[in-house]
Simulated scan of single mutants.
Amino acid sequence: MKIAITCNIRSDESEKFMEWDEYETIEAIEKGYINLGHTVQIIDCYKSDIENEIKKFKPDIVFNIAEGLSGEKRESIVPELLDKLNVPYTGSGPKTLINALNKAKTHKLLDKFNVPNPRYYESKKPLKKLPENFLYPVIIKPLFEGSSKGIWDKSVVHNDKDLFTVSESLISKFNEQPIIIEEFLTGREFTVAVIGNEDLTILPVVEINFSELPKTANPIYSFEAKWIWDTKEKPLDIFTCPAKLNAELKHEIETVIKNAFKALSCRDWARIDLRLNSLGKVNVLELNPLPGIIPDPKANSCFPKAARAAGYNYEKMLDLILKTSLQNKYNTEKMKKKAKKNN
């Protein structure tokens, strides 16, 4: 089978490119699929004429992990093109990628499908006081950034002064991008990797151990935690996988995960972040339909970590994602159209 890998390869370590993948990750994906017997071509979407490369290579399917560079629709660009070209691809479609990146749209869809999530408020301006029905503490985030960008240790605020300072800083730093304020949930936090469609395989749950952060740090997986304090050279022992869960909590997590995946119309694979509220109830923080899959275990990449705990090495994980994608109804329909056209 011919597989194209659509991606963005990180050219430097600046914050601008932090959502992009390092070449080592792309190389590991390429090697994995070659070892599985496939013919592979890497398409760096920042440097290539994507449409021309796809037409020349004529892939049977595209393994898509292209993040794009800017704007709230950046992750949808490649899937939109592939839909236009009638080319099958792994992962969610354009609408899901837009809705998952925009935190307010995610909340609205979760509310529509009665999936528990924190109270939220969207604003285009810095806030001098809390919206009605909110109490401190709250957490402030940019509306459509990923990889913990803009989620600083100081983003958890406890008073009006810090509310204004942080909200003003975020709007300024991210070029007038709106912000979202969420009630800050104080319970345990988990991230859950899933593979599937109608039948979801929920991989072992990963728990984030905030006790491993510096003593003065807020209990969040902030930008500092992800990119400064937790490094490959000095990894924090911040994740437990599988998490220690009683039967009731495990069942609740699995139910919420399935409902959230369905609410945003995710396909094939995703990673979903959860946190318990003060009553111990599971809430969805956000969904990531383009999860990171760094191959090096020292990098603390949660999707491969969960896969390893389930007994899948990197190659088997890639194979499972591919086989899942080939069986989803969107790709099977594309393959039927392609076969009909060729006959």
Score class of each variant (00 low, 15 high):
residue 8 N to K: 04
residue 11 S to T: 11
residue 11 S to F: 09
residue 13 E to M: 14
residue 13 E to H: 14
residue 14 S to I: 11
residue 15 E to I: 13
residue 24 E to N: 12
residue 24 E to T: 13
residue 24 E to M: 08
residue 25 T to W: 08
residue 26 I to Y: 01
residue 28 A to M: 03
residue 29 I to L: 13
residue 32 G to N: 05
residue 32 G to I: 02
residue 35 N to S: 13
residue 36 L to C: 03
residue 37 G to V: 00
residue 38 H to N: 03
residue 40 V to R: 01
residue 43 I to P: 04
residue 43 I to N: 12
residue 44 D to Q: 07
residue 48 S to Y: 00
residue 53 E to C: 11
residue 53 E to V: 03
residue 56 K to P: 03
residue 58 K to L: 08
residue 60 D to S: 15
residue 61 I to N: 05
residue 64 N to W: 02
residue 65 I to P: 00
residue 70 S to L: 11
residue 70 S to E: 15
residue 71 G to L: 12
residue 71 G to Y: 00
residue 73 K to F: 13
residue 74 R to E: 07
residue 77 I to T: 14
residue 80 E to L: 15
residue 81 L to H: 11
residue 83 D to Q: 15
residue 85 L to P: 08
residue 86 N to M: 06
residue 89 Y to P: 02
residue 93 G to N: 14
residue 93 G to H: 10
residue 93 G to L: 15
residue 93 G to A: 07
residue 96 T to C: 15
residue 100 A to W: 04
residue 105 K to A: 13
residue 111 D to Q: 12
residue 113 F to Q: 11
residue 115 V to G: 07
residue 120 Y to C: 04
residue 121 Y to R: 07
residue 122 E to D: 01
residue 128 K to V: 03
residue 128 K to T: 14
residue 134 F to Y: 04
residue 136 Y to W: 11
residue 138 V to A: 06
residue 149 K to S: 06
residue 150 G to T: 10
residue 151 I to K: 11
residue 153 D to F: 05
residue 157 V to F: 06
residue 157 V to W: 09
residue 158 H to S: 14
residue 163 L to N: 08
residue 167 S to F: 11
residue 168 E to P: 01
residue 169 S to H: 08
residue 169 S to Y: 13
residue 172 S to K: 15
residue 173 K to E: 15
residue 177 Q to N: 09
residue 178 P to V: 10
residue 179 I to Y: 12
residue 180 I to P: 08
residue 186 T to N: 10
residue 187 G to M: 00
residue 189 E to C: 05
residue 192 V to W: 01
residue 197 N to C: 06
residue 199 D to L: 15
residue 200 L to G: 12
residue 204 P to Y: 06
residue 207 E to I: 00
residue 210 F to L: 02
residue 211 S to V: 07
residue 215 K to T: 07
residue 218 N to I: 03
residue 220 I to T: 06
residue 225 A to C: 02
residue 225 A to H: 04
residue 226 K to G: 08
residue 227 W to E: 09
residue 228 I to H: 15
residue 229 W to A: 03
residue 232 K to C: 09
residue 234 K to D: 12
residue 234 K to Q: 12
residue 234 K to R: 12
residue 237 D to I: 05
residue 237 D to K: 14
residue 249 L to G: 05
residue 250 K to F: 00
residue 260 A to Q: 09
residue 262 K to I: 09
residue 264 L to R: 02
residue 265 S to T: 11
residue 266 C to I: 02
residue 266 C to R: 00
residue 267 R to S: 15
residue 269 W to T: 00
residue 270 A to N: 07
residue 272 I to S: 10
residue 273 D to S: 08
residue 276 L to K: 06
residue 278 S to P: 09
residue 281 K to F: 01
residue 286 E to G: 03
residue 288 N to K: 09
residue 289 P to C: 04
residue 290 L to H: 10
residue 290 L to E: 08
residue 290 L to D: 06
residue 292 G to Q: 09
residue 295 P to C: 08
residue 295 P to E: 07
residue 300 N to D: 14
residue 302 C to G: 02
residue 303 F to N: 05
residue 305 K to G: 03
residue 309 A to L: 01
residue 311 G to P: 01
residue 312 Y to R: 02
residue 312 Y to H: 10
residue 316 K to F: 05
residue 317 M to S: 01
residue 317 M to D: 06
residue 321 I to S: 04
residue 321 I to E: 01
residue 322 L to W: 10
residue 325 S to C: 08
residue 325 S to G: 06
residue 325 S to M: 13
residue 328 N to L: 04
residue 334 K to N: 09
residue 339 A to C: 03
residue 339 A to L: 12
residue 342 N to M: 13
